[in-house]
């Protein structure tokens, strides 16, 4: 990877961090409502994996911590922020919110609130791809908590049985909401849980984007060429709460601090500094430009966008075609 791409990746991770931090501010200012689940600490996962996919062509689906997956898939950050603000210009026209981002134009097929709900959807995209005979793949990002749902086991079985081209990415951040993995799950190594379904699997560091990309490249290639599922577990950690209403009582400050030392942006920045790819001055300039863009373009766009019209409340319940028509 050349220096230009390395700088771009560093910028993407930093942008993701600043975007999420700005969301938290907007939430406290009540410009964003509902539930808000932020991604700081896990940036290398979505950005590293999707760097090795064909974004815009491969189909991507995830849970409710979905902002960065949507951005890396190619969603316009203005449409994302506008959605969080509940505006008509949002990616889901203000009907979805933080947990339900959609952009079918870039094949980002959604964020979903039900834990484990996207497993079968991802396999369904792969089934449609299989019927069409095209070479896209389906990529499903979910947390370790999702693997205790029935949909995990049912979908792994069918995806393997039917040779569906789907890449399952498990972002293992060690907690299902506020319950530690060893308190909810017998086998804490998630990649081992697909062995009975005869799915190839691996586990790697999710904090070092170079490691993530290395594993993701192999995984994507495997699924694309063999037209079979693959399961990749990324060991990661969220530096903020599960959502904005998180007491934090379930983990120690020391543990959070320990993981903060392995912040994916810090790791990558240090590497690029040491290699002379980027300087401290450049990094600060990059950060300032990001903050300017978020404030003056993105948040401004969201704030100034119109609300959905009340008279449109029943639009989109059904598709806008003549009722009962066909063809």
């Amino acid at each position: 990877m050349d220096a230009t791409d390395q700088k771009r990746l560093l910028r993407e991770m930093l942008f993701a961090r600043r975007f999420e931090e700005r969301c938290a501010e907007a939430y406290h200012e009540r410009q964003i409502g509902g539930f808000l689940h932020l991604y700081p600490g896990e940036e290398a996962c979505a950005i590293g994996v999707l760097e090795k996919a064909r974004t815009g062509s491969d189909y991507v689906v995830t849970g409710y911590r979905d902002h960065i997956h949507a951005l890396k898939s190619g969603m316009d950050p203005k449409a994302l922020m506008a959605e969080l603000f509940g505006k008509e210009t949002g990616c889901s026209k203000g009907r979805g919110g933080s947990m339900h981002l959609f952009d079918p134009d870039v094949h980002f097929m959604g964020g979903y609130a039900l834990v484990g709900g996207p497993f079968p959807l991802a396999a369904g995209f792969a089934k449609a791809i299989q019927l069409r005979g095209s070479d896209e793949i389906s990529i499903c990002f979910l947390g370790d908590g999702a693997n205790n749902q029935g949909t995990f086991h049912e979908t792994m079985n069918m995806a393997s049985l039917w040779n569906l081209p789907v890449l399952f990415i498990c972002e293992n951040n060690l907690y299902g909401i506020g319950t530690a993995i060893e308190r909810s799950t017998v086998e804490i190594n998630q990649y081992k849980r697909v062995a009975p379904y005869k799915i190839e699997a691996a586990q790697c560091d999710g904090q070092d984007i170079d490691v993530v990309m290395d594993h993701a490249e192999k995984a994507v290639q495997y699924v694309r060429e063999k037209r079979k599922p693959y399961f990749l577990e990324l060991m990661t950690y969220r530096l903020r709460g599960h959502s904005m209403s998180d007491s934090g009582a379930y983990r120690s400050k020391e543990e959070v601090e320990e993981w903060a030392q392995r912040d994916p942006i810090g790791i990558y920045k240090r590497r690029l500094l040491e290699a002379g790819v980027v300087s401290e001055d450049e990094f600060h300039a990059m950060d300032k430009a990001i903050l300017d863009e978020i404030e003056n373009e993105i948040v401004r766009f969201a704030a100034e966008s119109p609300e959905p019209r009340l008279e449109d409340i029943a639009r989109y319940v059904y598709t806008e075609k003549e009722a009962g028509s066909h063809g």
């Binding site: 189909y59 689906v61 094949h107 097929m109 709900g117 497993f119 079968p120 959807l121 991802a122 396999a123 369904g124 995209f125 792969a126 089934k127 449609a128 791809i129 019927l131 069409r132 029935g150 949909t151 049912e154 979908t155 069918m158």
Partner: peptide, 15 residues
């Protein structure tokens, strides 16, 4: 539940 979901996913992208 999951084969229903597989059908739903396939429908979402045109099957």
């Amino acid at each position: 539940n999951s084969y229903t979901g597989i059908g739903v996913g396939a429908a979402m992208i045109g099957a």
